[in-house]
Amino acid sequence: MGIPLLAIGPEPLDLLPLIAAVTDRGDASGSDGAVATFLGLVRNHNIGRVVHHLEYEGYEPLALKAFERIAEEIRQRWPDVCLALHHRIGRIEIGGASVAIAAASPHRGHAFSACRYAIERVKQIAPIWKREFFEGGDVWIEGATADPDDDQARADAERIACA
């Protein structure tokens, strides 16, 4: 029933179904006091370049496992949080959403922290890449070497999430 909590695919993203999904706690519905959300957008500039659009690509089965790992890390750190995380792939125009996250909790602090933690971990370990098409060319963006067992990266994400 309903949408999956974790997903990667070409469909446009919408936060409202994610909010509904994380606050549907079955018999325990009504226990949440807060939902924190994050929507990552394609912006029209990057390090001095005029950006026209982005193309995202992912190794989908491994990306889903990475999302499951992030959700499990959040269950360990903030057991009262329910997380939803959807990442879009394919071409996305300026202003379009590339990633949508919702975190529900009885307490707003946990919701905010888990939401921030999730996007930091996506950037560290999700096998997803963006290609930037800008005025005058295109380039693959390369960030972190993905290593889910890197405890220092995980600690960095937790520190940022709890700042």
């Binding site: 990306a63 990633v99 996506v122 096998p127 997803i128 890449w129 390369e142 960030g143 889910p148």
Partner: peptide, 26 residues
């Protein structure tokens, strides 16, 4: 086979091995 693996992992016939450049999701 769609699980992160170390470089010292021994391969088996039929394995799917992926090489991933630094990631940039989000």
């Amino acid at each position: 086979n769609a699980d992160y693996a170390r470089r010292d992992q021994v391969l088996a016939d039929g394995d799917e091995v992926a090489f991933l450049p630094p990631v940039s999701g989000g």
